[in-house]
Design a binder for these strands. Sequence first.
DNA 1: TTATAAGAGTTACCTTGGTAACACCTTTTT
DNA 2: AAAAAGGTGTTACCAAGGTAACTCTTATAA
Lengths: 215, 215
Amino acid sequence: MSKHIALIRKSVPLISISDEEINSYLRDRSFKISTYERNNIVHFSGEVCLKLEIILSGKVAVERIDESGNLMNIAEFYSNEILGGNLLFSKNPHYPMTITVKQPTIILEINKVRLFALFSNNHDFLRSYLEFVSDHAVILGDRIKHYVNKTIRECIMNYLEYERQKQNSDKVQLNITKKAWAEKMGVQRTSLSRELAKMRKDGLIRYDAKSIEIL
Amino acid sequence: MSKHIALIRKSVPLISISDEEINSYLRDRSFKISTYERNNIVHFSGEVCLKLEIILSGKVAVERIDESGNLMNIAEFYSNEILGGNLLFSKNPHYPMTITVKQPTIILEINKVRLFALFSNNHDFLRSYLEFVSDHAVILGDRIKHYVNKTIRECIMNYLEYERQKQNSDKVQLNITKKAWAEKMGVQRTSLSRELAKMRKDGLIRYDAKSIEIL
DNA sequence: TTATAAGAGTTACCTTGGTAACACCTTTTT
DNA sequence: AAAAAGGTGTTACCAAGGTAACTCTTATAA
């Protein structure tokens, strides 16, 4: 348990909360720790959101599974990130997608009443909460912008452009598998393969198994 | 000006703020009133968001215009609704889409410092702000769910199903033009026409210029 | 009340991308 | 080291839907 408190102490969103507070919240159950194994499901699509969750360690993914069983990876969350922040105060707080564990994960759950009390008493916490929620709404909006009504080629270029800037090189290292990339863009893996081949033929890119060079 | 104060007094998000406060905020310019005519642009895509805006009266639309000039209507906002709520506290607060005026509109602008002070001093205001922001993040998520990787037929059925419940009748009145409907779904008007004709042939619907009956 | 603009329906044509069925690799597991 | 599982590339086939070019109808303006 003291290991968990150490984890909470290190958690960025909670940085301004004292040990005594943490202990008392854990005791009165307004804070709760949950641990998950790989492939556990944290929340099913449609489930009601009743608490805020802060990831203390690990990695989870928000995934949309359509009627035919196709997977689309909408977002991934790591340590210090928040789940349910966009949902908790909504009039209709249902998780819109499934949240699954990708790496063993420890999560701190905060109930709604405690959260609101923290906002009131701790303006730094409120500020970082608002910042987080804002940032993620913006990311959602960006996904609409980048992936709605775009051709696969445009999706590929968006991704490569983003990685080119992040990696600061025209030769982009692919740190994910092609399968995962296809799921991220919500297209078939074979269609991604085909489009990459076409783009090579059109002289736009050069590539091998692990990297793509933008020409 | 007193007319504006009356409008602010009636505004749901600000219901718990007194006349004296409103007056003093207007005087120190942390509150500001702007009026817009039809087709004015409130914010261009990419513009930096520096303030929260509350619509006191009128109607605006959030629109995405792609490279080929095609319009997609992402959302519409009316009296008592908030603009920029998802953005203001983000690290990268750029309006992702263009916001245009559909009906003459009066907007109250609140700067970031004042807004944060209101949160701190007025928990009801904070609560309704959080609720609003949450609801709208959920709506954004729903749009992803409803419109990403769906056929036109599925988009049509989603819309009709939604309207059927709202209007509580199998015969759905179309209160928008077909053109606007197509823009809302981000498809070509001709493709919508074609698909409706197909659905009629398949015995799914019956329709005339103003209404559609679900069979 | 014309004239002009804007919405609406139809269809031939063609591009995009999902499906399915292979053949290879590469990585784990036993 | 052999076997199983999962990632990858390729391609023929086909459905969905964007484009463009018309025509017809319904508002709005002169």
